[in-house]
């Protein structure tokens, strides 16, 4: 019996545990874009990873680290108001976990799969803040799941080499929120130049570049 395209894609989704490093077109594009930047300033929103740090520091980057993924993944009670019938995500409190970063100073934000873990109503504020941190021509990088994927959350991502990301996947775990479409991400980042790369693992790499001319 022939497989549907959806089944084929599902068969290629990462297995539980650690996924093999896959060359990333998105990251290749990012490093090429930053090749003339002497000291990029990079914000990594995942759990601190010695391997990622090594890669970024070798690139002479100043690295900001703030793990937003773990509290989002574990629905950290500090960031949820459950006193009402519908739980309310406390976006401002959540974003206060970021270290002090001057606005319009960051060359790249690596947010990995963070957006897939957050409720839709929080996304405008989250992306608004990331966008405000980007320097002109700075790039916001994230990974979104394809809409047909219902399970297979990455617990963490790290870099094996500049363009080879690797992830630890919880294959059984279902995604807590509806998928984000390409159109939605473009709407959430008005004015940004958005590039989307499809991967073989049912993910999309999204790169949103802030224009050279600041519109504050």
């Amino acid at each position: 019996m022939a497989w549907t395209s959806q089944q084929k894609a599902l068969s290629r989704t990462p297995q539980p545990g650690t996924g093999a490093p896959v060359p990333s077109q998105g990251l290749e594009w990012l490093w090429k874009h930053l090749q003339d930047v002497r000291q990029p300033q990079i914000l990594d929103c995942g759990p601190v990873s010695p391997a990622t740090l090594q890669v970024l520091l070798n690139r002479r980057a100043k690295v900001y680290v703030a793990d937003l993924i773990t509290p989002a993944l574990e629905a950290d009670p500090r960031f949820w108001d459950r006193s009402k019938k519908t739980p309310l995500f406390l976006t401002a409190d959540f974003l206060r976990q970021l270290p002090e970063i001057p606005p319009a100073s960051v060359t790249a934000v690596l947010s990995w799969n963070l957006l897939d873990l957050l409720p839709a109503e929080s996304l405008p504020n989250v992306l608004g803040l990331f966008y405000s941190l980007l320097a002109p021509l700075g790039v916001f990088y994230c990974i979104l799941r394809e809409p047909f994927l219902a399970a297979g959350i990455e617990r963490r991502w790290w870099l094996e080499s500049p363009a080879s990301p690797r992830s630890q996947v919880d294959a059984e775990r279902t995604f807590p929120h509806p998928p984000i479409t390409n159109r939605e991400i473009e709407k959430l980042l008005p004015g940004a130049s958005v590039k989307i790369f499809l991967t073989r693992s049912g993910r999309r790499e999204v790169l949103a570049m802030r224009p050279a001319e600041l519109r504050i």
Binding site: V48, S49, P50, L53, L57, R60, K62, V63, Y64, V65, A66, D67, Q97, P99, I101
Partner: peptide, 26 residues
Amino acid sequence: VVGDLVAMGVAIEEGAYFKGSIEILR
């Protein structure tokens, strides 16, 4: 560790918690 680190080299063991910035002195 929560803070800003500046050094000639920085080594972080797997499992450690860090929030802040890291800058390598050249």
